[in-house]
Computed example of a mutant assay.
Amino acid sequence: MGSKRVALIVNLGSPDSTETKDVKKYLDEFLMDERVIDLPYWKRALLVKGIILNFRPKKSAKAYQKIWWDEGSPLIVISKRLQQKAQALTDIPIYLGMRYGNPSINDTIQKIKDENPFLTEILLIPLYPHYAMSSYETVEVKVREAMPIIGHDVALTVMPPFYNSKAYIKLLSDKIGEHHPENYDQILFSYHGIPERHVRKTDPSGEHCLVEDDCCEKEHPCQAFCYRHQTFKMTDFVNANLQLPESKVQSSFQSRLGNDPWLQPFTDKRLESLPSEGVKKLMVVCPAFVSDCLETLEEIEMEGREEFLHNGGEEFKMVPCLNDDDEWAALLAQWITDFDPKKSLSEANTF
């Protein structure tokens, strides 16, 4: 008979294998997304298909080979484990889809339809703590485009970004605390970078974000969609729990692409310069990711570590993402069971 209400959790995705052809296919889908590279189609196609896909897949394939598990892509394996753990804690069916690659959103929606003929509601949870057009927004858009597959009217409820969820912040803080951040000279919160123009585009007012240097500190309705503001707030929220001196905590942005202005400071540049500033023992946290992936396991744990130590650092610690942590799975199951769209995550007692 199926269920009238189901949950759909969506993560970024991964190539099907480390073969160059599979990596090329994945990068094509990813980079041709107009919310990732927001250029007119012909310019995007010229850049991606004419330039990037001629050299990037081989290089990326080598990077994926460094972090690939026997079971497959770490991100996919971890996401499935999280789904299974959360499913054991709620009666509401939980489905897993990937924005790029497999299991695709379209295939997952088809599976939801086949298994739940009397479906009335889907609760969508993009597995991104912050709002950005190239992550949270593109997931919601893609799912809405796939909804006609269902064949009848079904309500789509989308859970907002959870960067300000009290329960999530407490959980994240506790997990960081287990690694004794007080014993390090600096804690670097490295968030995935985005172009500055993305921040401006997601400002409905068009007159606040990045207009002034302290725009993120001045309260404004656009901050419900501002990635930069939400990352800075998450750092503040976590440190309010950790209670470290502000001088020991900073935020940076990783994984930039191209020559356009991106959010700063850049993680790689900070890793190069921190040892000369007296930081010998460094802890890095990647709160934009709920699952370890290429950007954490290779870019930070491998390349970032080498950068920091090569430039005079002495100790480097990357805190793992929440991955399939039992408490994280329990919180996700609680969100799915109890979510009330009339209450914000920061206000609801259960969050």
Score class of each variant (00 low, 15 high):
74 P>M: 05
45 A>G: 11
153 D>G: 09
295 E>I: 04
64 Y>N: 06
118 F>L: 03
144 R>Q: 14
293 C>D: 12
226 C>V: 11
302 M>A: 01
71 E>N: 01
328 W>P: 00
158 V>S: 12
292 D>F: 01
259 N>D: 10
241 N>S: 12
57 P>W: 05
212 E>M: 09
306 E>I: 07
71 E>D: 06
232 F>P: 01
303 E>D: 05
49 K>V: 08
291 S>Q: 09
327 E>W: 11
22 D>P: 08
9 I>D: 07
199 V>F: 00
36 V>Q: 03
2 G>Q: 00
127 L>P: 14
225 F>T: 15
36 V>W: 03
240 A>V: 01
298 E>Y: 07
223 Q>Y: 08
189 F>R: 05
234 M>Q: 14
224 A>L: 08
36 V>E: 04
247 S>I: 14
202 T>K: 03
155 A>M: 15
138 T>K: 13
298 E>I: 00
72 G>C: 04
286 C>E: 06
31 L>E: 04
67 I>E: 02
335 W>R: 08
336 I>S: 00
245 P>V: 11
196 E>M: 09
38 D>Y: 06
351 F>Q: 06
349 N>G: 13
208 H>S: 08
104 S>A: 10
274 L>W: 14
44 R>H: 08
12 L>F: 11
85 K>Y: 10
69 W>E: 14
125 I>H: 06
166 K>T: 09
306 E>T: 08
216 C>M: 06
350 T>L: 12
207 E>C: 13
246 E>N: 14
148 P>Y: 09
311 N>F: 11
158 V>D: 08
271 L>E: 03
275 P>E: 06
18 T>N: 12
261 P>I: 09
189 F>N: 07
239 N>K: 07
219 E>F: 13
54 N>S: 04
89 L>T: 11
15 P>I: 11
61 A>P: 05
350 T>D: 09
191 Y>T: 03
261 P>A: 08
102 N>Y: 10
212 E>P: 02
269 K>M: 09
31 L>P: 02
175 K>F: 12
183 N>K: 15
108 T>H: 10
220 H>R: 05
187 I>W: 05
332 L>G: 03
181 P>D: 15
305 R>A: 11
172 L>K: 14
252 S>H: 12
115 E>Y: 02
324 D>F: 03
13 G>E: 04
348 A>I: 00
61 A>R: 03
298 E>M: 02
244 L>Y: 15
182 E>D: 13
120 T>L: 04
136 Y>G: 12
334 Q>F: 07
157 T>E: 12
244 L>C: 15
338 D>L: 04
331 L>N: 07
284 V>M: 01
219 E>I: 12
47 L>V: 08
30 F>H: 11
85 K>M: 09
3 S>Y: 00
11 N>T: 14
96 L>T: 05
172 L>W: 14
149 I>R: 01
98 M>S: 07
219 E>D: 14
167 A>F: 01
220 H>W: 06
99 R>G: 10
28 D>I: 02
35 R>D: 13
199 V>C: 04
145 E>P: 03
281 K>S: 15
250 Q>L: 15
146 A>D: 02
294 L>S: 05
222 C>D: 07
58 K>T: 00
25 K>R: 06
39 L>V: 10
303 E>F: 00
104 S>R: 07
266 F>M: 09
312 G>I: 10
348 A>W: 00
146 A>Y: 02
40 P>R: 09
